[in-house]
Design a protein around this nucleic acid. Sequence first.
DNA 1: CCGCATCCGTTTCGATACTG
DNA 2: CAGTATCGAAACGGATGCGG
Lengths: 229, 229
Amino acid sequence: MTSAHERRSYEQFCPVARALDLLGERWTLLVVRELLAGPCRFTDLRAHLPGMSPALLTQRLRALEDEALVRRTELPPPAARTVYELTERGRALEPVVYELGRFGIAYLTHAGPTPQPPMHLLALGLKLFVVLEALPGRAFVVHLALDEGDFTLRISAPAHGPAIGRVAIDAGTPAQFDARVRASLSTILWLRQGVMTLAEARAGGLLEVDGPARGVAAACALFGLETAA
Amino acid sequence: MTSAHERRSYEQFCPVARALDLLGERWTLLVVRELLAGPCRFTDLRAHLPGMSPALLTQRLRALEDEALVRRTELPPPAARTVYELTERGRALEPVVYELGRFGIAYLTHAGPTPQPPMHLLALGLKLFVVLEALPGRAFVVHLALDEGDFTLRISAPAHGPAIGRVAIDAGTPAQFDARVRASLSTILWLRQGVMTLAEARAGGLLEVDGPARGVAAACALFGLETAA
DNA sequence: CCGCATCCGTTTCGATACTG
DNA sequence: CAGTATCGAAACGGATGCGG
């Protein structure tokens, strides 16, 4: 009984069912979400996943390790000892988490219990707003000057692999940018949810986009904002 | 406690967590997978989801209805009475299921318990092999002549919305096609999983691609097959 | 402190049987 | 055909403990 698993499976010859065999249990994909942002210690994961018991976190990490989606690394003395990180196979989950997030945007209610979303969720959330179909055919930098903080959105040059791999977001202000967006998170959310139009937001001073003319248009497209009319 | 739900939520201000609040319970996404193929009766769903108890199916369908992802329609007398189908919001789940499936391909073991996968899973599975980044910029038809049956893969012209919306697969043989692929499902699976190279498959007579020259190259790209070397 | 393991009450799930 | 009802088994959530 050492292996503990041979977990409950759907027993179907279907890629979707197989994926859910691996990822479908509670918390699993949220653990992956955390690890997509970079290596984490056990305690970091706990802090970012309130409500998850440590035993369950251990169990999920072991299962992910067994599937070679996560790797546990023991660091030499100086730093905190063990960190968890995604393997290359694990990083293949980025599109899955991305699409889940894209879908979830429509169901985000901003009058939630969290007064100020934690920084790392903010960065992830902003990444989800990017419309992959509208990525420019070249590298591109956007300065997101939100009320909640400054972020740098970098689109790298086209490459092989999933398009989401071209998108990176970090806290901070870029030295140069192709476009700059000033708004609050609420405004961006409302625009995406259709609560408000781009014209209304601009008229109300809730959103400003500036930079080189072509950059502005590209930035709007990037966030799915219609510039017409 | 009339509403019965107010189900367990992750309580995070994060689109991924919100999506999993709606979809993260066991069986939910497999129900969605079934409905993506078209409207279904209760009994059809049961037949395609062995192991799921009817009570649980009812519960999942009610929850999806409450979220306006699924609609229940009562048909007039002639036909079997009630059918379930995805709403427009529900159809927004196609990219989620698609990416899960893309990920799951790598974990499909063909020596499974199912001797012959059911037709509807076969069609879904084939759709998952299509590489969305490689969709041609025009309409395109591929005849998939598999050992398991004939399928017609239709790529429609570029449009708004998710790229997966351009891909459709049906059983049957097309009157005209831009390319034809002859292979078995195993071969396609092995190629994708890297068990075998395209050159090896062709040399061994396991795979043939014919049609107009440009069609062949496009078809290979469509399935992520390197034609070089 | 960090990285877990153990215990226990509650919730969810799976299997089967039964009904309008 | 389209569900309900029931019940034992498994999974989960929360608190607590414990060695390095």
